[in-house]
Amino acid sequence: MLEAKLSEAALLKRLLDAVKELVSDANFECNEEGIQLQAMDNSHVALVSVKLYASGFKRYRCDRPLPLGVNLGSLTKVLKCAKDDDICTLKAGDDADILSLTYEAKSAYADRIAEYEMKLMDIDADQLGIPDTDYDASVTMPSSEFLRIVRDLSLLGESVRIEVSKEGIRFVSDGEAANGNILIKQNAEASGKKKGSIEMNSAVTLTFSLKYLVNFSKSSSLSKKVQLMMSNDVPLLVSYAFNQGHIRYYLAPKIGD
């Protein structure tokens, strides 16, 4: 059985927000190390991978590996019933057909305990083996900055070309009616304050769909920083780390004909 108690429901709410538009159903793989989710979008262009460490929970118990097949739309609805600061406990039996969620709040006048149950499903999903990659460029920047760049450029065109060079990291969008490019220079003072960093072994140029990057940026509520890992001709890794775990997205590049 699984019993996992989170100190704030807000974490799950934010994670669901960051995943539900890419994936409709997914297995939450629970084991003694924690809870993990890995799923691709329908078009097999993007993959999202979430990890919540057992140590990130107020209490965590999982006796044996348990895949919980979750409809993310249903879970989103059930989580809407929780207040952000409610203590949230997830429970499932070994048959994994029902997920129960308990929300506990202490208000000034009374203790409130709310209990919800949702049906689980069998999901037959292909698990992809993600190879370990030594990336040629690694860029860390404020997640709010990345959100703003991809949202702005998505107004102009469908794609963004990302160029990492000695100059810094440049985001370029060529739309039909307008184009734009944004350069972020390596700034000694800023990197000293650990606002961001650009590390590069060799120059990288890659093109990606902005629709997906805008979607990934929903994770900005989970972490103040985002890390972009890139090598030519391989999928981009966009990683957000937070205290209890991480969310990572992989996005296949676009290529010229």
Binding site: L128, G129, P253, K254, G256
Partner: peptide
């Protein structure tokens, strides 16, 4: 003209 690739080309079934 640019073409969107899929992840299957890069990631094997694990």
């Amino acid at each position: 003209m640019v073409r969107q690739q899929t992840l299957g080309k890069f990631f094997g079934k694990g």
